[in-house]
Structure formats: C-alpha cells, structure tokens
Design a protein around this nucleic acid. Sequence first.
DNA 1: TCCTAAGCGAGACGGTACGTCTTGTCTTCCA
DNA 2: TGGAAGACAAGACGTACCGTCTCGCTTAGGA
Lengths: 182, 182, 182, 182
Amino acid sequence: MDTEDRRVRRTKERLHDALMSLIEERGYDKITVQDLIDRADVGRSTFYSHYETKDDLLISGLHRLSDDIELHMTDDPSANDILPSLGVFRHVADHHELFKAMIGSRGIDLVMHAARDALTERAKSNIDRRSSTSRNAAIPADARAAFIAGSLMAFLTWWLDNDRPHPPDQMAEMFQQLTTSA
Amino acid sequence: MDTEDRRVRRTKERLHDALMSLIEERGYDKITVQDLIDRADVGRSTFYSHYETKDDLLISGLHRLSDDIELHMTDDPSANDILPSLGVFRHVADHHELFKAMIGSRGIDLVMHAARDALTERAKSNIDRRSSTSRNAAIPADARAAFIAGSLMAFLTWWLDNDRPHPPDQMAEMFQQLTTSA
Amino acid sequence: MDTEDRRVRRTKERLHDALMSLIEERGYDKITVQDLIDRADVGRSTFYSHYETKDDLLISGLHRLSDDIELHMTDDPSANDILPSLGVFRHVADHHELFKAMIGSRGIDLVMHAARDALTERAKSNIDRRSSTSRNAAIPADARAAFIAGSLMAFLTWWLDNDRPHPPDQMAEMFQQLTTSA
Amino acid sequence: MDTEDRRVRRTKERLHDALMSLIEERGYDKITVQDLIDRADVGRSTFYSHYETKDDLLISGLHRLSDDIELHMTDDPSANDILPSLGVFRHVADHHELFKAMIGSRGIDLVMHAARDALTERAKSNIDRRSSTSRNAAIPADARAAFIAGSLMAFLTWWLDNDRPHPPDQMAEMFQQLTTSA
DNA sequence: TCCTAAGCGAGACGGTACGTCTTGTCTTCCA
DNA sequence: TGGAAGACAAGACGTACCGTCTCGCTTAGGA
C-alpha cells in the first residue's frame, strides 16, 4: 500500500477532491459516478478499479479525516475523559461546510456510522483502563461505550442542525456535564 | 382520511403487509417497488397513487407503530422520567425480528431518524414542563432533548446489535441510571 | 404477434426508421444503441425489451424486406427458374443507397447471411419439386441449392461493388446463363 | 520485412500461435487482445506495435496459408480449370478444426472475404488468358470471376457446415460440373 | 336499473445510473 | 534501448429500477 504507484496516488487524490467539491456543490446524494469521473478527469473503469462504489470512496476518505481528528484529540486538555470530545467538535467546526452539505443525504448516515464505531471503540478502551481501578459498574462496558459514543453523535447532530450556536469548547463542556453519571 | 374507500384501505393494507414480509425475507434494501406490487398483487400505478416511494410506505407504516408505542408508554410506571424508555424497549422487543432484518440497510436510518425526532419532541416537552419548576440549566432544553433521545437510540442500537442480552426492564433501568445527570 | 399493442408497433417502427436513416448517414458499424434510441426517441430499456442487440434489430427488419422481395419474385416471368433472380436484383436496385451504405460494415455480412439462407431454402424446394420429374443428380440437392444461392449473392455483391453497371434484367439474364448447368 | 529481427519474428510467431489455439478453444469472437497477449506472454504495447487490431493479426496469418494453398494448387492436375478448386478443398480439409471453430464468428467473414478476393483475382487472370483464344462472352470477365470465386466459397461453406460429407476430390468434381457453363 | 366515475391491474414507456468490458495509448521500469 | 507490465481515458454495453403514462375492466353509488 505504501509502495503505491505515484499515478495511482494522484488518481485517488483527484477522486477525493472531486467528491469533496461535488458534495459541497450539490450534496452527496445527487452525485453520480459519472459526475465524479468527469470532475476528476478519470476513466470510468479506473474509478471502479480503485473503489467499489461511491460510498466506498467516501468511507475511504474518512480514514484521512480520522487521522486528523486523532491529532486534535491528543492535544485535548480533557484527555482524561472517557471521550475527549473537544477535538471532535473542533474538527467538525473546521469542516462544517462539508458536514452541512451532507446533512439530509444518505451519505451522512455512512459517515455517522463509521464515526460512531470509531468513537465507540475508543470509549471502550478508555472505560476498560479506568474500570481496573474503580469497580462500580452494573452496566456493561460495551453498553456504556455505545451510550457515550452515540450521545456524542446525537449532540453533534443537534449542533450542526442548529448551525453551531455555541463554540466547540462550550459544547465539550456541556457534553462533559451531561455524561458525568456515565 | 377516515372516509377512505374500503378498497383503498385494503390496498394499503396489502402493501404494508407485503413490505413487512419482504423486509424479514430479504432486508429492506433488496426490495424493489416491483417486488412490493407483485407481492401485494397491486398495479404499479396504484402503488404510486398512494405512496411516493418505497421509503414513504415504510415511514407511513411507522405511524401505526408509534401509536402502539404510545400505549406502552402511558402504561409506564416510570412515566415521570424525561423519556419513559421502558415502553420503547418493550415495543422493540416485540418486533425484534423486524428490526433485526432492517439492521444494515438504509431503511434503519429512516426509521431511527423518525423515531429520534418523535422522541426528541417528547423529551423536549417533558423537559419544558419540568423546567418551569426547577431552573438549573446552563444547557439549552433543545440540546438536552436531542441528547436524551439520541442516547436512547444509541442504547437501543447496541441492544439490538448484541441480540438483546438483557430484558427490557433492565435496559430501561440502566438507561435511567446513565442519564440522571441530564 | 398480430395482436401487438399499437404502442409497441409504433416503437418498433421508430426504431427501424432510426436504424435505416442512421445506416445511410454514417454506416452500420458506427451506430451505437444510444444513437438509435436518441434518434427514435425511445428509452434504453424499451429498446432492449424488444430487441437483444443492434444486429437483432437489423435482422428483424429484413423480414419486412423479404416480404417485399417475395412480391417482386411472384411477378417474375422467369418463375420457372430455380431462383427467380430478377426480383432480387430489382429489389436491391430499389434500395441501393441502403445497401451501398452497408458495404464494408459488419452488418452487410449479417444481411448477406440471412438472405443467403432464405434463398437457399427457396432454391432447395424448387429443386426438389423439379427433381421428382427429372432424375439426373449426382450432386445432392442441398449442395446445388447452396451453390445457386451463394452464386447469386456473389453476383449481387459484384454488381453493387461496381455500382450496378447493368440493369436488373440484364443481370438476371447473365445469372441465368451462368447457372444453366446447375 | 525479410530483415526482420529474430526477436520480432518470435513475438509474431507466438501471437499467431496464441490466436490459433484460442480460436479452436473458444471461437474467434470470444477472444480479446488481453487473452492473446496473456497466452503469447507478450506486452500489450508490443502487440499494438506489430498489429493494429485482432483482425489484423488474423488477416496477416492468412498470407501464410495462401502460400500453402498455392502449393496445393500448382500440384493440381485440373490446373486448366478456371479455378483449380481441388487444392482449396484439400487445404480446408487439412485445417478443418480451425475453420469449424471459426464458423459463426465474425472472423469467418474476414477470412472468406480475403479468400474470395484472392480467388477472384486468380480466376480473372485465368479467364483473361483463355478469352484471348475463345471469344464467347456476353458476360464481363469481372462478373464471371466474381461468380466463380463466390460460388466456390458458397460451396465450401456448405461443405463445412455439413461436416464435409464428401472427400475433396469429389467436391472438386461436383464444383467443376456445376460451373461448366461459366 | 342503468350509467358514470373512481379505483384498479397490467404493463409499455422514457429516463437515469449502474457496474462491466474492451480498446488503444501512455508511462515506467527492467534487462 | 526495446519490450513487459500495467495504469489509464474513453466509451459502449446490457441490466436494473424508477416514476409516468395509457389502457380496459370492475364495481360501486347516484340518477
């Protein structure tokens, strides 16, 4: 994978760029594979040799983002929380046009699902680490993790739907407060 | 609506039945309008004269369910919670084959979205009623409601994904515990 | 087949017309299915619900022509020949632009093949009828028929390739002369 | 052409062998350039540097065959016929698997066309040689030649289609008989 | 009792996007 | 330096659904 042809890398790059710009222009659902390859100046079969579907292209793009989020997170002063949400709010704020454009489309579900899975996993490992010390749980760690991650997604969705009425740090603060009992 | 032709009602009935049985057989995504009308023994144009899309048929079916849920809810001893979740868990348990069959399909997102919206609204009004007495919120009622409803959906999803490892009343109990700080 | 939907008939009509006009415009090989349906103002799936391929459309069109040829043939004064060729030469002359446009394309082979098969069959039955009276053949009737029909096609091809240097009746005369020993 | 690189010759050799074996395996139409270069172990660009298309490769292979036929022909005792057909029937019999495999494919038309052209030319020159002595023709030499060559092809086709029911010498005899009046 | 309009089944249709396939060109790298 | 390897643009293909439409049939409910 790291010894990928330079041409291949450029092709993928162009496809991702095309996807992003098209999402902002007309929304994820209204994009066809033809649109993508026209914009990216790429052959149809080339597209299909790299990605299975439009969704595949979107998801594969998320991996890049998640690395980015990771950075935000490690900077997080509240790193001792189960889910250091500040990084997430910041990241979403940074790309809010993109997220806004995706709302209402089927694509947002894909993104949300992938994000929730990643966050759930992270929450799970944080809970496990902590549980070794404090034993209080009548509630399975899995369930707690799913709850926390899902809550964050819901909170995030509300935030975006309402055009981010509060800054990221306030959002993180509220989220922290709402989940102290978890 | 209540003066609806008897034939019309029967047609709709057959379409909903067809949808439900097909969902359990092969999952929501793999159903086409053609499948529906074949199964329901209904003409193509008849389908489109009643519903705009397959999604429309699904959503319209949810209204029946929500009435059903309402019943569960009013029976709920924990009716003084912001969201009386027990009824929801019970209802989902009652139809778990259906929900299981929808998981992974695009349809579940529609259902979840509709359900979350309904729950959010309910939570909102409960919070408002309560807030008039106790004034504690640095957190907007909207956000609280979205958080609560979203959390419930996430918790529900985890429950279904893991084949309902606990009975509804235990789930409701846990949910209650996790959201006391909200 | 004769109780065919009026709409269906019109659709087929338009497709055949489109094919013919496009053949004359740019030659059979350069026509795509998309061209056909654009010209005929017909949906892609409609095309495929009636015909399997472009070739299929062409061949199915030949049946109409063969009826036409049949007429020419029965008028033929030389109807006692094994193959009354005059009708064929006349028919080809009537549509020479079409045939000219097909020369060199893959389509001409389809047409020629179909025509040869039809003519072979006709020759065969004529020979059989005659053979009952005069028994002279060391050569199987099948072979004779194939020979006669193939010869006519070859003669026809030469005629077209050289821009019909002789009128149909002269051509028929020559053909008659060349095949007396058959 | 005769100073062709040894490597080049080997490459061409392998491509022709690949073509022949693939034709017998699955028929001409089902062969792609990719199949050919895989079988011949040759690079894609290498193929295109030597041949323009798959058809080109096929046709270029025919030249070898025609040399072979030429040998058969000169051996022919009936060399005073307009077309010494015995050599042709023998040659086809020698390669009947190949020809059988091509029947029904688009490739047979290419071969037939090329063969007919060669035979027509040969017939033409024979007729011209003879005509200087016997003057009988109301029929142009061109037309006669086309007729003879086309007849032979048709006869040949019938022979192959019916799995060569008679030996080559009998076929040549019949053909001779059918074309005495030409 | 008739008759007239709505509801309906059947299914043809135009249209859009899909994922596959093959072609011929072009680039890179190796022997 | 020529050929193998193979990525690529291009674009036709046949398939799958969609939502619209026309057509008769049937089946009440009002005249």
